[in-house]
Each structure stands twice: as structure tokens, then as C-alpha cells.
Design a protein around this nucleic acid. Structure first.
Lengths: 343, 343
DNA sequence: ACTTTTGCTGGGAACGTTCCCAATATGGCA
DNA sequence: TGCCATATTGGGAACGTTCCCAGCAAAAGT
């Protein structure tokens, strides 16, 4: 495991009997015109010495690293993992290598990665910000694509789910199945505006339908398993809840599933006594009892679009910013009941 | 998004009224002795100019990047995701930043990351190799820790599950529950020796118990959902399978769960007609019907140990190689029956 | 008062590339 | 044969750091 010592362009040049400039022209495809003969000699010398280009030096000169950082808040969550994975294909086709940064919802970790980005280690960034500080992103001064809708991010390229549309899909479905007393369970985790989009859409939807918002049916919690347990408790402790709640629209699948489990444990028949709909379609959604009806986010499209936008931005930093939002699609399983219309 | 122009150590020095050497001493904590007064001036100038250290230049000089690459074969698999995440804590405490590379079981992608590593971009590597080419790893010439047991990796630090021990835990449990006709379902994916360890332990176990290996009870397949479906089909098509198979030891949870689902769909009562035991304890294992009994791999310990070993190797490249293997722990759920002993 | 130690500083030479510019060789054309 | 255009080459000068070494002042010891 001896660290390779100083096999630089110069030793290669010496062995090949050419100048370092020529070697440089060969290894960096850019610099044009080298005679076939010289190129052959250089390649042979490279092979023989086991030379590999020092990227610190090259990057110092060119200010390019050919690496792209994809920052996600939770790599152990399959939703993010899959998005990260999907970006790879497009980016690698463009000649870049992709590395993933996991912030674990921690501002400190995020700042750490921002530091890496600022110091010129990456040619581009695809990220879901834990905080609301979009200026920090612009200040890094490198091409960036945001994952996840941000109303206020007008001058940064964005890719994500159209939360409004996705929320409507869920609510429309509940309504079509005859539910009228619809509750909402969501949070303010890290990014208030993003989540209030669900809440806002919920309000709009109800007023469209001529239903007043019932304060007791708006639950605020963390989008975690804990949150789901809490939600179940809150529901059960609501006096005469059976008469007050038909269905619950959950901010993500994690709480939806936790709620289903907790309610089932309390003897409630989810899917007939009460309906639950989630959002994301994580793998576990297919395995809950009853299986969760949810709105699937289009991870593949999202990842692909993020890669495209970033490549476009890199090759033309002056282009107008673009937003690509995908609506999501309904995955019908068993957690939503068919209810005869009342009231 | 204008790319920051040339705010180098030199402009800082000029503004602070000191030499670039002094600035360097301040920004790189290494070079000792700077007067408090000078340090104050420098910091003020840094703040004012918004200077950030160019890491290409610094890396060129010091040959350090303070970045560590963790390579995993499938970031969308929660097992790998969690391991990758766990390494972070230890490594970041050591001052390093962690980025994750996802090979997606592709040799080409792996080679791409190897290339990055060879060009000096990382100070260390934690990886699970897709191929059996351990020489390629040594040739990179940087400190490396291998994830996953490799019999032949004698001179590389290794962290992983003690496959032998984990397999025995599963088999012992099946045996204790009265199963005697135990089948095994595993693969040769990418790393033959690793997996034959399960098969070998299976053979040893049976011969210890005085049971001959029944060729029909050794299933070879991919460790994927497809493989699981195939396995169910193979079992059901075995003439009089009820009399020939008590239990199946599955190479991982993914096939175990797929098998459970497929068998259940065919009307077989898993957990009484036949027992299934898995390995890994992925999240879905708790949600299958019946819930899967499995051997949990110790991800947290594994990630932590990998970080420790890598830091130790970096600080002392000459130290003897070390292997840390963890046995795994049984997670008892419902997919294994209690059987009265027969034969 | 003189030397020695100590603490701090600045100047220059690396590190391994790429880029610019000038120099040479090659070939085509008159 | 002579002359111009073109293809290929080599020699420096960057890029922004860190490191080594020498210099200098202030503090400490004799």
C-alpha cells in the first residue's frame, strides 16, 4: 500500500522522449493536435509507468473537478436514495462522477458540505436544503439544482413534485370515494413554506367543495414514526371521532403507516372505519395492513430532470432558470374505504 | 451565480497588511505561531473578502483532500444506506467529510470511482467491491477498508458480518424449533467465495447433525424479488414438498419476503406448513405476513468499526491489518414454526 | 550590556497541471 | 526552388497553496 511517488507528466515526457506539453495534450483531451506517433509513445510511457493524472493540479489550473455532489437529507430513506441513484445515469453520461452527501437533516452537516462545495471541489450541486437559507446556496457560486418545490426559489433551477397537484390527487380521490370529513396531518419540518403548500391546498379544496375547515381535523406533527403514533392517539382521543372523521390525508407514508399500525392495534378497522391516504409510496406502503393507498412521487423522472437541468446550467450559466414539477400518481390499495355519501 | 473571481490568500494578505505566509498559517491550522494581533487582522480580512480556501491548491501541496469515499453497491437498499450513514459520524469526528459512491452492482461504475480515488481525490476509501479483484484495490495506493467478509483479503482491513456465525444462528434456531429437513436458497452474485461461505456452513452444520445434504434442497438463485418468486415456484413444483421440506434458510430478506408472499398467494401457510428464515432484517421484514424471522446484521457496529479502522490506517499506514466481524442477532418473528420433532 | 532563546514574520521555491506563445517541421503551391 | 499555410512541438509562466529557511524583534538569561 505504498503511496505512489511522483509519477508526473514529467517522468512520462522523459520516457516518451517528448515535452511535458505534449503529454498534457494527450492526457487532457482538450489541447488538440498531437501526431499519432507522439501519441503512441506517450500512451506507451503512461502504461509503463502506471501514470494517473493528479487531479488537484489539473483542477487548480482548470477550475473543474468533474465531480458532482448530490445532497439528500436522509440516504436511508428509499425515496431519497432512489432519486440520488437516478441522477447518476444522466450525469455520468455527461462525463461527470456523482457522489452523494447525506445531511441527515442536520444543519451542521449541510454546512459542512456547503464548505466542500465552496472550496471548488464540485462542478455542480443537486440538493434538498434542510434550511430555508437559499442565499447560502447562491453564495456558493456553482451551478445548482434544487430538489423539492420552493415557492421562494425563483432564481434557482428546481425539480420536484408538484405538491399542490399531488395533494389534490389525494383529496380528489378521498372525495370521490365519498369521504366528506377529511382530516390532514402534516408538519413544518425545516421548510415551512413547502409544507404549508399542502395545508393551503387542503384549505382551497375544502372551500371549493363548500366545506368549512374544522380546526380539530388539522393535525400538526413530525413526519416520523413517532408522529404517526401521536396522530393515532390524537384521533382516538377526539370525542366521538367516528362521527367526526371519515379520512385522514397524511403528509407522508411514514406517518400514514405508523398510524395504520397504531389504529389497528387499538382495534380500529382502517379501510372501513376510517380511511388513510399517504404520500410518497415508500416500499413499506405495499406491506402495511391494510396496504396503504398513497400518491407516488415520480422519483425516476425527478432524478433524470435534475441531471438534465444541471448539465444545461453548467454548459450555459446564463440561461433562464427552469422549474420542473411532476404531479405524482395515485396508487390505490386498501386503506381507503368506499363510503356511501352522507350529510 | 457569478463564479467568485480570484479571492486568494494574496488579496487577504494585502488587505490585512501581512504576508501570504501568515495568512496561510492562519487558514491551515497546522503551521503554528501567529500573533493574536495578526490573526485578528487576517480573520477580519477573510470575513470582509468572503475568502474560502481553494482546495485544489491546498491538496496539490499537501496531498490531502480530507474527503473520504464510501462505495456501496446499492444505495437504495436500506442495509447499505444505513451502513454508509453510520460511517459518517466517526469519520466526521476525525475531521473528514464523507461522500457516498453508488456502484449499482456495475463494474463500470466501480471502475469510475476507482479512477477518482487513484487521482488523489480522497484520503481514504470504505468499499464493498462488486468484483473479486482485490489487487485493483491495493493498487489505488490509498488507505482502504473493505465492507463484507472476504476470505482471501488477508492484507486489507475488513469489517463485516461473520457469515459463518450468522448462518449458524439461523440454522441453530431452525434446528431448535424442531426442523430437520432444512433447505438453503442463495446465490453467487458477484462474489462467489463470500456466498459459498453460507453454503459451506450449511454443509458443515448438517454433517455435524448427521444429516446428508439433499441436492433438491439446495436452491441457487438471484438474491432479488425475482429470485424469491422463482424459489416459491421451485418449492411448490417439488413432488410432495410438504414431506420433504420443513424450513428454508434464505440468503437475504428480499428473497425471503418475496417467497413468503408467493407462497401465501398459493395458499401455503408460512409459519406452520413451512418455515422461512431470512438474513439482514430489512425494514420490510417486520411487515410481511407472516412477519419474517431473520438474522439482523449489525449495521451500526459495522459502520462504526469501518470508520475506526480507516482512521487508524490513515494515521498509521504501517499497522497490521485488522478484521472485525460481527455475528448478527436473531430477530424472532412469525415465519418460523414450532414443530414437534419427527424422523 | 551581551548573548541566547523564543516567537513571529516574509520571501521564495515547490506541488503537477494547463495554457499561451514562439519555434520548428511539413506539405502544398506557384 | 522558394514561399506561405498548416501541423506539431517545446519552453516557460501561471493556478493558489504550503513548506522551508532566513531574518528580525522582543524577552530571558548571564
Amino acid at each position: 500500500m505504498a503511496r505512489k511517488q511522483s509519477i508526473s507528466i514529467i517522468e512520462v515526457a522523459r520516457l516518451a522522449g517528448v515535452s511535458k506539453s505534449t503529454v498534457s495534450r494527450v492526457v487532457s483531451d482538450r489541447g488538440g493536435s498531437v501526431s499519432p506517433k507522439a501519441e503512441g509513445l506517450v500512451n506507451k510511457a503512461i502504461e509503463e509507468l502506471g501514470y494517473t493524472r493528479n487531479h488537484h493540479a489539473s483542477g487548480l489550473r482548470t477550475q473543474r473537478s468533474w465531480m458532482i455532489l448530490v445532497m439528500v437529507p436522509d440516504i436511508a430513506n428509499s425515496f431519497w436514495a432512489e432519486i440520488a441513484r437516478t441522477t447518476q445515469d444522466g450525469l455520468e453520461a455527461g462525463g461527470y462522477s456523482v457522489v452523494i452527501g447525506n445531511t441527515d437533516w442536520s444543519e451542521q452537516r449541510q454546512e459542512r458540505y456547503y464548505g466542500l462545495a465552496r472550496s471548488g471541489r464540485f462542478d455542480g450541486l443537486i440538493l434538498n436544503s434542510v434550511t430555508d437559507d437559499l442565499d447560502a446556496i447562491k453564495d456558493m457560486g456553482i451551478p445548482t439544482v434544487l430538489l423539492g418545490e420552493r415557492v421562494e426559489a425563483q432564481d434557482i433551477d428546481t425539480v420536484g413534485t408538484d405538491t399542490r397537484a399531488a395533494t389534490r390527487i389525494a383529496l380528489d380521490f378521498l372525495w370521490a370515494r365519498g369521504h366528506r370529513r377529511i382530516a390532514i396531518a402534516t408538519n413544518e419540518h425545516g421548510s415551512e413554506r413547502f409544507l404549508s403548500l399542502r395545508r393551503r391546498t387542503y384549505g382551497e379544496f375544502l372551500s371549493e367543495k363548500g366545506v368549512a375547515v374544522d380546526r380539530d381535523l388539522v393535525f400538526r406533527l413530525n413526519l416520523s414514526e413517532e408522529g404517526g403514533k401521536e396522530l393515532a392517539k390524537s384521533i382516538l382521543s377526539l370525542p366521538r371521532w367516528q362521527e367526526r372523521i371519515d379520512a385522514v390525508f397524511c403528509g407522508n407514508d411514514v406517518i400514514a403507516i405508523a398510524t395504520i399500525d397504531a389504529l389497528a392495534a387499538a382495534g380500529v378497522a382502517v379501510g372501513s372505519d376510517i380511511s388513510i391516504i399517504g404520500m410518497d409510496d415508500i416500499p413499506a406502503a405495499a406491506h402495511s395492513r391494510p396496504a396503504l393507498t398513497t400518491v407516488r412521487k415520480m422519483r425516476t423522472l425527478t432524478g433524470k430532470a435534475a441531471a438534465e437541468l444541471l448539465l444545461a446550467r453548467i454548459s450555459d450559466p446564463g440561461r433562464p432558470t427552469e422549474k420542473r414539477l411532476f404531479p405524482g400518481e395515485l396508487v390505490t390499495r386498501a386503506s381507503v374505504a368506499e363510503r356511501c355519501i352522507h350529510t
